[in-house]
Structures are given as C-alpha cells and as structure tokens.
C-alpha cells in the first residue's frame, strides 16, 4: 500500500501540488486525471523522488520514502513515461535488463527474466531481443518500456501518460494488456492521464486534480454518482454519465431469471455492451451465459435502464 500524505510542491511562489493526500491499496490501480498543468506529473515524480517534495511525505508499506536512499528507492519502483525514454544505443534485451543489471543479478538470471518479459508482452524473443528501439513500432516500444519498468519485479509501478502516443486501436489493446498483466502480477499502479475514458477503463480509483489541488479521490461509480463539485461533474461529462456507469456494471449484477432468444452474452461483460447488443439486434432481452457457457438467465432493456442512473 502506498500513502501520499499532505504532499506539497512549490516552485518559488507558485504551488504546483497543494496538500494532496490519498492512499492506493495493494494490487490496485489508481488513476490521476486532470487538465494540463494540474500538477499530475509532479505528484507522480514525488513518489519516486525525481522531484523533492516541499512538504508532506510518501509512505510505501508504512515506510517513509525519505528513509530509503534515492537510487535504491527507484530500483524498487517501476517508472514509465510518455515517449518511454528507451535507450537508443541499446537493444531491446539490454534495455529491459537495465535495472536487474544495476542490482547486479547474475547474467543467467537476467537473461531468463528478459525472455520471460518478452513472452509476457507478446514480443517473440528470437525476433525482438536484438532489435534496437528505432526498429520498433510505437506499440512495440511502449511494451518494451513497460517490460523494462517491470524487470526487477517492482511492487509499485508509476506510469505517466504511457499510452499518450498510441493510436486508438493500439491504445485500447495496450490498456487491456496492462490490466491483464496487473491482475496476474498483483502490481500496485499509479497512472497519470488526461483521458477520462482511459481513467474509467483502468482505474479502481480515480484522483481528480485541478490547479494543484486534489478535488476528489473515489471509485469511478462514486465519481459519476456523487461528483464533489462542478469541475469534477464537467470533467466526468454529464452526457456520457449513464453510459460510463453502465460500463462499470457487469451483466451479472442485472441478471434476471427467465429465458430469452438469441446469441447469449457473457455474465462478465458490461451492461454497456449488453445494451449496445440489444439496440443493434432490436430485441428486448438477451440470454446470459456463465464462464463455462451454461445459460444462467437473461438481461433485459428495462433492467439495464434502471441501472443507468444513481440508485435512490
């Protein structure tokens, strides 16, 4: 768990991060969103002390980060930035091996770890290990950037607009991959973005920042239903709200007994997906299947519509 405690950064007279506190549970993904210049990057960089806080502290599993030597702290925290900052003079394998080598792992263990990560990120080792960054597509560079950050098995991963340079299709795939990898490894992630859709898609909790201050830190559903102020409400987007809400709810939660005609939908999909299928096929209800494919009930237009607004 990481706790950000009254963190403040001042450059001269201007406050860039103003008294921000929140905590991120072990194994969850927190997203920091806000307009440009809100102080998101500065906040993130204070966690691994690339920026020294003017006041406040950061605790990682209860340990004050100031008690840990800077470089040692950074060896323990993965860091991914927009543009990835891959070393242009080193091939993919050497890029990924950076932190393990700084930690003086023996070379066999390093090679093993590199191979493991290339596999995990669907980069065929024989093909990619010896390529140089300029020989990779943007999406491949992005995966190498994340693989490099995860190389020494950090418990915490900081990501600053990691998908900012990708086109919509590749970005969506990269987001799915990140979620899958995070579930698999149990890594705690703090991710900065100014893309609200990305925040809703990835965040277990979302921290909304504006003009150096933290306006609200809550789950996506709470943010939709109980925005702390006008700014958050506008950022969340009033017109998008019902649909965002439906994206957050699984079909499982709106399951009704009975049987409907048509192609079944998986219980793990979102109500947003279910509604879109219903609209497109012109039906009033869809059969629902569990993970094994067995039919377990149905989901109806009426049931979905009830969920598209805050429950009384």
């Amino acid at each position: 768990m990481i706790e950000i405690d009254r963190l403040t950064k001042r450059y001269g007279a201007t406050l860039v991060v103003d008294d921000v506190s929140f905590a991120v549970e072990e194994g969850t993904l927190a997203v920091v969103v806000g307009t440009s210049g809100a102080g998101k990057s500065t906040l993130l960089r204070m966690i691994n002390r690339l920026v020294e806080p003017s006041a406040g502290r950061v605790l990682i599993d209860g340990e004050d980060t100031r008690a840990i030597p800077e470089d040692e702290l950074r060896h323990r925290i993965g860091y991914v930035i927009q543009g990835y900052g891959l070393f242009p003079h080193r091939n993919v394998a050497d890029n990924i091996a950076t932190v393990p080598r700084l930690l003086r792992w023996d070379s066999k263990k390093v090679a093993q770890r590199v191979e493991e990560l290339l596999d995990l990120f669907q980069l065929e080792p024989a093909e990619f290990a010896h390529k140089f960054p300029h020989e990779l597509s943007g999406g491949q560079q992005q995966r190498v950037g994340v693989a490099r950050a995860l190389a020494a098995r950090p418990a915490l991963l900081l990501m600053d607009e990691p998908f900012g340079a990708l086109d919509a299709v590749i970005r969506s795939k990269a987001q799915d991959d990140l979620l899958a990898i995070q579930r698999r490894l149990g890594t705690t992630i703090v991710l900065v973005t100014h893309d609200m859709n990305e925040a809703f898609r990835l965040g277990d909790r979302i921290a909304v920042m504006d003009q150096a201050r933290l306006l609200q830190y809550a789950t996506p559903a709470e943010l939709l239903m109980r925005p702390a102020d006008d700014f958050v409400e506008r950022l969340v987007g009033s017109a998008e709200r019902p649909f965002r809400l439906l994206s957050l709810i699984r079909v499982q939660e709106a399951l009704e007994p009975g049987h409907a005609e048509g192609e079944p939908i998986a219980a793990s999909e979102s109500l947003h997906d279910a509604l879109s299928r219903l609209l497109w096929t012109g039906r009033k209800a869809l059969p629902v299947a569990d993970a094994s494919g067995a039919l377990i009930g149905q989901v109806s237009v009426g049931g979905i519509l009830q969920r598209g607004r805050p429950l009384p």
Binding site: N48, L50, E70, D71, E72, L73, R74, H75, Y79, I81, Q82, G83, Y84, G85, L86, F87, P88, H89, T98, V99, L102, R148, A149, L158
Partner: peptide
C-alpha cells in the same frame, strides 16, 4: 541526448555517474 532518455535513466535509479558513463557519453 533526448531528455526522456535521461529522465528514464534517473527514474530507474541510475546514479549520476552511471547515467554519464552508460547513457549520456555513448549518445
């Protein structure tokens, strides 16, 4: 030397000397 590269090197915990010798000078 691209600032993102230096920033990433710092973020991964390379000391000033390691950054100079392994990243900045070769580039």
């Amino acid at each position: 030397v691209p600032s993102a590269v230096v920033d990433a090197a710092r973020g991964m915990g390379m000391s000033a000397r390691q950054r100079l010798v392994d990243v900045e000078m070769p580039l």
